[in-house]
């Protein structure tokens, strides 16, 4: 299943609404990098409000997406991580220290604007 990527000015917005299987996660990674390349977007918000599980594989894909986007000149903010997901991630031993986060999509956009537009 393909995850839609919306463009808003210089930003790309993604809301993950499905239970991510490995294949969809990898496709999403590729789609997003292509879209960053084509659009020249400088910021990306990935909203995880509807995601109720992040296991080690999905965490790795998300972490890689952030690093790769960064290499391409786009800052990524993850938003809406559920409390239960945050707790299981820590228990898995995954800390995502270099990843920017915000409470919701709106806060994520504000964070990007503050950082990118000073």
């Amino acid at each position: 299943m393909r995850i839609p990527i919306l463009k808003l000015h210089n930003y790309l917005l993604i809301s993950i609404q499905i239970d991510l299987d490995d294949q969809s996660a990898i496709e999403f990674q590729e789609d997003l990098l292509n879209k960053i390349h084509k659009s020249g977007a400088t910021g990306v918000v990935i909203d995880l409000t509807s995601v109720d599980i992040i296991d080690s594989f999905i965490a790795k894909v998300l972490g890689d997406v952030v690093t790769m986007s960064d290499l391409m000149g786009a800052r990524v903010v993850l938003t809406g991580i559920q409390p239960a997901v945050a707790m299981t991630l820590i228990e898995l031993g995954i800390h995502m220290q270099d990843v920017q986060t915000a409470l919701d999509l709106e806060q994520g956009l504000i964070k990007l604007r503050q950082e990118l537009e000073g």
Partner: peptide, 17 residues
């Protein structure tokens, strides 16, 4: 509860993968 559900689902995901 919700957190334990997430723990169990995550553990199953790891084992199944």
């Amino acid at each position: 509860g919700t957190v334990d559900q997430a723990r169990i689902a995550t553990a199953i995901s790891e084992l199944a993968r």
